[in-house]
């Protein structure tokens, strides 16, 4: 079981990182979107390894099946070929990349220093059958107010999106 889990982790992790790299480097946005979808699905697999199967479903239904469909939809509505033949990276890409790497180095240092300090509790042999219930419980009791705020945020976003995307007269 352990080796299987490890193999799965490595598989998902490599897939996620590789497609993430491809995502930010592709010229063609549709290909980029497909690679992002792959990353998201691999992440969903990692959620499953972490026994968060409800989040796995949320990730697949909402992220991949909802948000990314929206992305692909919009990508098809905007002109691809013009942007494909233009320069893909900013002029300051070198500085930006270096800064990002410095940031990553800091995080890396922090994790490296604290390595081994954090450990997961022993894996239960069975996937806990109550994950969905537990999440729902927390969401509707302890996190009720944030939940409502999130719904209002969604409502606002919906109205905002409709207003933004609506074609103006004339």
């Amino acid at each position: 079981m352990q080796t299987l889990n490890q193999a799965l982790f490595i598989f998902f992790a490599v897939l996620a990182v590789a497609s993430a790299i491809l995502m930010v480097t592709r010229r063609n946005i549709v290909h980029g979107a497909v690679f992002l979808i792959t990353t998201l699905l691999s992440t969903a697999g990692i959620f499953l390894l972490l026994q968060a199967e409800f989040l796995f479903i949320v990730q697949v239904i909402l992220y991949v099946g909802g948000i990314m469909v929206l992305f692909v939809f919009v990508i098809m509505l905007v002109n691809l070929d013009v942007s494909m033949r233009q320069v893909q990276f900013n002029r300051q890409w070198f500085v930006a990349g270096a800064l990002a790497l410095v940031l990553a180095g800091q995080f890396l240092f922090a994790i490296w220093v604290g390595r081994g300090a954090l450990r997961l509790p022993a894996m239960a042999s069975e996937i806990s059958p109550k994950n969905t219930e537990a999440v729902a419980d927390a969401l509707f009791s302890h996190y009720m107010l944030p939940f409502e705020i999130a719904s209002i945020l969604l409502l606002v976003a919906m109205i905002g999106a409709v207003v933004m995307a609506k074609r103006r007269a004339g």
């Binding site: 996620a16 990182v17 993430a20 790299i21 995502m23 930010v24 946005i29 980029g32 990353t39 992440t43 992305f71 919009v74 990508i75 905007v78 942007s83 233009q86 320069v87 893909q88 990276f89 900013n90 890409w93 930006a96 990349g97 800064l99 990002a100 790497l101 940031l103 990553a104 995080f107 890396l108 994790i111």
Partner: peptide
């Protein structure tokens, strides 16, 4: 961290808003 860094690089260096 790897995914985060790639994301940051993507935001900072790409010109395409969708990316």
């Amino acid at each position: 961290l790897a995914l985060f860094t790639i994301g940051v690089i993507g935001v900072l260096t790409r010109r395409n808003v969708i990316i």
